[in-house]
Design a protein around this nucleic acid. Sequence first.
RNA 1: GGCGGCAUCGCCAAGUGGUAAGGCAAAGGUCUGCAAAACCUUUAUUCCCCGGUUCGAAUCCGGGUGCCGCCUCCA
Length: 482
Amino acid sequence: MTLKVYNTLKREKETFVPLKAGKVGMYVCGPTTYDFIHLGNARPLVVFDTVRRYLEYSGYEVDYIQNFTDIDDKIINRANEVGEDPIQLAARFVEEYFQDAKALNVRPATIHPKVSTHMGDIIAMIRKLEEKGHAYEMEGDVYFSIPSFKDYGKLSGRSQEDMQAGARVEVDERKRHAMDFALWKKVKPGEPSWDSPWGKGRPGWHIECSAMSQKYLGDSFDIHGGGQDLIFPHHENEIAQSEACTGNAPMARYWLHNGFITVNQEKMSKSLGNFFTLRQILKKFSGDVVRFYLLSTHYRSPLDFDDTKLEAAQKGLQRLRTGRRLLEEALKDAARQSGNRRPAAQREKLADQWTKTKHDFCEAMDDDFNTALALSLLFDLARETNAFLHGGEGLGAEDLELLRHVAETFDQLAGVMGIELAETAEAADDSLVDGLMDLLISLRGEARKKKDWATADKIRDGLKELAIIIEDTPQGARWKKG
RNA sequence: GGCGGCAUCGCCAAGUGGUAAGGCAAAGGUCUGCAAAACCUUUAUUCCCCGGUUCGAAUCCGGGUGCCGCCUCCA
């Protein structure tokens, strides 16, 4: 099977072929750390973390680089507002970022480079651009010269003429071309600054990604990811800087861009004021519900946000978890393992579904990471597994072996999506709670034997208040955290 | 004005030429003391509209309508 990815550069799906066999170099634009991330920021984190997991599942060794923009106008402005040192403020939100990422089960990148610790690399690249005639200095500022790079516009599909006509920003008169952009900004009073050949100053926004991706992944690498709004100007400018600097093209072979989160069909953004921070959302829903919700739509489609969507995601995820739990109980319940194996037809039906699931899952993910389809396959497998368990009492050795395979597949495939279905060890390992629950359940069992429904229901309702659900089964009552 | 995307059941959503996945919600049934969970059954002759190509289109082409995004910091 071959992986196909939609490449923004070509505007079509292409077969993915890495530069080096068995290895993938991947760069994803990370956040500017001046505040908590919002849900819109969370989407690329989850999407590209899933891309990474699937590449690894497919056997690739992945070098995953995600930067932090820790020097920037927004950071300086925020720092001035709250009276905090900008470098310190940025560092603080880097820490907060890692907490959010962990809640979403987003693994740390191989390397998380920061602008503030790569000044030498950035300055060296600007100098090289200057030497090659792609950059010019004006009174301490350095600009990239658009006309010096003939491919400018190839990612976003604009011609240089289009852009000149469409330029609405106030044009700095000193620039040679309206669209020339800053590589280095001369220091202003009260701003953090670094020494450079052009005097004190700080880097422009785009140069960091060119310098840092080159440092860690080389002149040319496999995948560059980010949100659709970065296509222009950010990624267009990265291409100009990197390819002008090295003379090699392409900077990245595959450009992947995720769609936006919208609220009432409008883009969620800070300027519209319609954003929700991840922290706000995590007060009502767990990180894996948010992750499940984000992956339930293809990554390039827009995704509309509201609570009802997350509630639906929560219930769907719960259904998968229940299926996984019933499976675990069957595997552990010695009483059911009576040796009366199921009819072969029943077993074959489940075995077929199991085989089909593994195959179709890869096919779905190979088709430009179709996580929505991939997740639906887990539902199909869950239904078939539940039906199998529902279809009789005893389980023979062959049945158990099959169920163990199914359980393993559930965990593996859900793991590719970054979702834990099996109860985690830490959640299961609470002997005090277990002991108390055993006691309550046995008391309730005695009440039920005496048909004392009032007492039995009081215990069940009381526990429900504490978010513990009691379910009666022919094998006795069981409980779970709601 | 330039460039791009989207329109599929009440809601979400997959499906790029072969006769509409999946989830949530809803209805009926099995199980249950009642529940819960699970299972079974039902719920789009139809994919924004109008033409066209084709043996055959949600899927391709043309036109229209509506919505959204980028072109300025933004994931």
